[in-house]
């Protein structure tokens, strides 16, 4: 009965090595997996699709570089979609690090893929505001006390896109890409529930489960993690085949996902097998925890 024991107490570094391999190998071999949108993602897509061209959209990048691998694909898909539909997008962030994320979109994606879109007319960067949830509250109560200029200091009145924006409710929809607090939850609590502006967006796979209870009453739709992003990308490509050749980050990154998920499932099964084989051996020695996951 020593084999099960050695499997049970396997060196963590062997697992680390396996995970590293499970991520790197698919990245090199690039297998493709097709996806189709679930209703909760489709609902966001349909909303963006249904809004009349020229609708004012508020897009808050509530994340930093650390969660960018998950949320950047959503940001790109949403920007591509809203721009294609001709909406006017205001970028914003409640994370100090979010400023850099907005820059990635306004400095590289937009000039490259939508050269005809002009700053100040089709999109604007309202920058970062501190104050967490309180900032949303202030914006809803009195938008212009907190936001009176764009990130570069140009007064809102001097930009055609924001000249008529006096209140938060001048936006028809609020989109947030959420990595934590503040994020969609705060947008729902302070803007959606209070000012009645529809709220939707995406969250890392970590925050997504916590946001499910708000759907569909307080939250229009939700992209959960890379899978949600890849679903949105597939909806976008289905509707606008022109994007077929655009780099779809989420779809590409699903390869490592699939392999690692399978690896983890196999590891868990192996661990349990070893546990049950070795249990008779240890039955007399170990206590049983009442809480799941308590170490013997």
């Amino acid at each position: 009965m020593r084999i099960p024991d050695s499997i049970l107490h396997i060196d963590r570094r062997i697992i680390f090595l396996l995970i590293g391999a499970a991520v790197c190998i698919p990245l090199i071999l690039k297998p493709r997996f097709q996806d189709s949108p679930t209703p909760i993602v489709q609902s966001i897509f349909d909303t963006v699709e249904r809004l009349p061209p020229g609708s004012r959209v508020f897009l808050s990048f509530d994340y930093g570089p650390d969660t960018a691998p998950e949320l950047d694909p959503m940001a790109k898909a949403l920007v591509r979609h809203t721009m294609t539909r001709g909406h006017e997008v205001s970028f914003f962030t409640l994370f100090p690090e979010g400023v850099g994320q907005i820059k990635k979109i306004t400095d590289s994606l937009l000039p490259l893929e939508f050269p005809e879109k002009a700053y100040g007319r089709d999109f604007v960067n309202l920058g970062y505001k501190a104050g967490l949830g309180g900032a949303i509250n202030t914006m809803v109560v009195n938008f212009r006390t907190l936001v009176n200029a764009d990130a570069e200091g140009t007064p809102l009145d001097a930009l055609p896109i924001t000249a008529d924006v006096d209140e938060m409710v001048d936006y028809v929809i609020i989109l947030s890409l959420t990595a934590g607090d503040p994020g969609l939850k705060e947008w729902i609590q302070f803007a959606g529930d209070i000012a009645g502006i529809p709220v939707m967006g995406g969250g890392t796979a970590v925050v997504a489960p916590e946001l499910y209870p708000y759907y569909p009453q307080q939250l229009v739709g939700l992209m959960g993690g890379l899978k949600g992003a890849s679903e949105y990308e597939s909806a976008l490509v289905d509707r606008y085949p022109a994007f077929r050749n655009a780099p779809m980050d989420a779809t590409m990154r699903m390869g490592p996902q699939v392999v690692t998920h399978v690896l983890i499932v196999l590891l868990v099964l192996l661990g349990n097998l070893a546990y049950f084989l070795g249990r008779a051996d240890r039955a007399g020695r170990t206590g049983q925890g009442t809480q799941a996951g308590r170490r013997p």
């Binding site: 970590v206 925050v207 489960p209 916590e210 809480q291 799941a292 996951g293 308590r294 170490r295």
Partner: peptide, 15 residues
């Protein structure tokens, strides 16, 4: 913070 509870339950002795 509900999202983090599963990880604590898995990795800690008591949560």
């Amino acid at each position: 913070r509900p999202p983090q509870l599963p990880f604590f339950v898995a990795a800690c002795d008591y949560t």
